[in-house]
Structures are given as C-alpha cells and as structure tokens.
Design a protein around this nucleic acid. Sequence first.
DNA 1: CTTCCATCTGACCGATCGGTCAGGGTCTGA
DNA 2: TCAGACCCTGACCGATCGGTCAGATGGAAG
Lengths: 195, 195
Amino acid sequence: MGRAVPDTHGEILAAAARRFTVTGYRGTSLQDIAREVGCSKATVLYHFANKEALLAELMAPAIEVLRSLDDQLNGLTGAAAQEVAAQGFVDLAVRFRQEIAVLRGEFPELLCQPAFAHIQEISDRLRDALAGHSDRPGARIAALVLLAGISEACAEFADIPDDELRLALLTLARRAVEPVDAPVPHPPTTEDKDS
Amino acid sequence: MGRAVPDTHGEILAAAARRFTVTGYRGTSLQDIAREVGCSKATVLYHFANKEALLAELMAPAIEVLRSLDDQLNGLTGAAAQEVAAQGFVDLAVRFRQEIAVLRGEFPELLCQPAFAHIQEISDRLRDALAGHSDRPGARIAALVLLAGISEACAEFADIPDDELRLALLTLARRAVEPVDAPVPHPPTTEDKDS
DNA sequence: CTTCCATCTGACCGATCGGTCAGGGTCTGA
DNA sequence: TCAGACCCTGACCGATCGGTCAGATGGAAG
C-alpha cells in the first residue's frame, strides 16, 4: 500500500551512491545512474538540479557529522585532541563508509566545488588535532597517513562488521599517532586566560 | 649545442606527470598535456600510441622497483616480512612520489587496464607481507591503512626532503604494524612439509 | 469534463573526449 | 637534386558527456 509510492528521488540517490563507489564521481555518467535506476537521464535531472547537486545531497549527512566533530575539537589540545579526533573520525569513517568511498581519490578536485567549500579547512583542522597540534613533521605526517589510510580502509573493507572495523581502526590509530610527550601547549610565561 | 635537441617525447612525459598529479588521469585530457608542452594534441599521439601507453611509460620505472620488492618479499614470513615490506614500500613511495600521486584514487580503475595487469596481485602480496602474513583482521586492516596512507602522504608532502619523509614514514610504519607476537605460522600438529 | 500539477520521457544541444589521417616542413645521405 | 625518414600539424571523426526543452501521462481537485 504505502510502499507503492515510487520514491524515485531516493532510488536515484541510492543508485548514484552505488555507482560512485565503483567507478568514482567523474567516471560515472548520469546515463549510468539512470540505467541502474531504470529511468531516463532526464528523470535524474528532474529530481536533481545537476550532477553536483546529486553528490552534495549524497554527502550531506556525512558532512553534518564532520562539522559537529569539528566543533567538538574546538579548544582541545595535546593528547585530548588526538584522542577525540581519532575516536570521532574512526566513528565517522565507519558509519559513512560508502560516502567516503565515493570521494576516494577525487577528494582534492571535488573540494573545489562550491558545495564543499569548507570541508578542506575542516579536514585540515582534523589532521592538526590528530597530530596533537604539534608542528613536528613526524606528527603531521602520521596524522595524514592515518586519516587517508582509515578512509581507504573503510572503503575497502565493506564486508567487515562496523564494530570490528571500528575497534581495529581505533586501536591502530592510538598505536600510530605520534605521542605528544609533554603537555605544554604554551609555557606559563605567556598569558593563560583559560586555565 | 647538444641541448638544442628538442626531446619532445620526454617533455610530453614530464608534462603528463605534472598534469596527472594535479587533475588525475581521467581528469587530464590529451589537449591539456599538449597545451602544457606547447605542441598539438596530434603530436602527443605521434609520440605515444594512446593515452594509456603514455601512462604506462610514465609508471614503468616505479613498477619495475615494485616488482623487485615483490621478489625480495618472496619466502619471508612474520616480522621479517613486515620489516622488509615497510622499508621497501616506504623507500619506493618516497622515491616515486610523483608517480604514486598520479595513481591517487584512480588505482582500482586504472588497474583494470592491461598495462597494469599484475600490479593488483603484487600490492595484495605486499599488504599481506606488511601484515606479517597474519589473517587477523586487525593486522590486515593496519597493513592496508599504512599502504594507503603512505601513498597519500608521499603525494601530499611534496615539499619535504626525501630523507626526512622516509624516516618519518618508516618510524610510523614500525610503530603502527600489528606485531606478530609468536612466530607460529602453523602449530606442529599438522604436517610440516617444509621445516 | 476541465484544469492543474507533479512526474517522466525522447529528442536534441553544444562541448569535449580519445583518436585518425593526409599532408607540410626539415634534415640527411645517396 | 632528389628520395625518404622523421617530426609535427590542422582538420576531422564518432562517441559520450552534462544539461535543456516541449510535450506525454496520469491522478486529484474544481
């Protein structure tokens, strides 16, 4: 009865997600998506203004969670920032495996599109937090390796249950981040307005 | 004098590498490459049979080194395999930063092309070695995260000197691989035909 | 029955893609 | 001087891309 409602919009969204994960955003044509849904290409463009809008709607939930993680990170320093960043990103990556798989590799190019204007800055801050806000090259490199590797792993291990993948990644992340040996974000000579 | 030789072939190769690293293989047209070189698209296709052949010649040296690493790995087990895999891959990734940046993200699709027929198997074996040939999900996941992350890091940190990047990545890899606590590939109850 | 609106479609558009081809320069060696 | 190899090019090809548009369909409201 109720299920007789076609919900073409949602079907297109789901089909696009499936195709994007296999052949990438650039490598997937609107025709491909339409074929998978079983409608015409014009129908796809009736439900979505253009290809970019389709991608934007697909990524919206993941981006929302990423933003909230960015908020949580605000103000944290040192090991606390590392732990929250690791836990938050692993959780996000596991939950939005498919969305992350979509962006795989095309990240830098897709970020240029206006729909993803601030994602670059957010992920930069996330990387910075995972490095414990350290400016040592080793810490920054480790943070990048982890973020990129976790994304890739989530896209790859689609068959592993969420809990198991999350645990493995979090364990790895805690083992791999470069430890911030001294909790000295700034020596007590400067003004400490919040302590 | 001698430098007057144009060497268009090499210039095209270099220009292609530059463009591919920025906009990816798919995202770079032969026209783009020709424009960067300052010749016509037809000239590009005079020096290279097609776009795929251009990519293949670009990747050939890196693939050669990857193959030799694969040979070195043959027969190694446990921690020894992990160490050789980590060291070998970090070295390869740092040396062939640009080549690896080219493949960034388009790896799975590009591997389908006949020129890269066996790369998938080799990288699978490399991942397996980095996991110490363990079948524990944690070890396999850590290996994948490292391989993917190291590739991404090499593509990203183009400004860091080779030595510094290599040291940081190797330190990270040794810290991050899941340790193979006991060198027991198989308990002595089953038949041991080679020991 | 008529009107209206949401949904959907085939036909079509200009742009760009990878790739082909005939031919024009230029240099060399006979 | 001439033949031929080498390098390079503009013009062109069919295919496919994202996107537009006029119109067909069908159900609900008046």
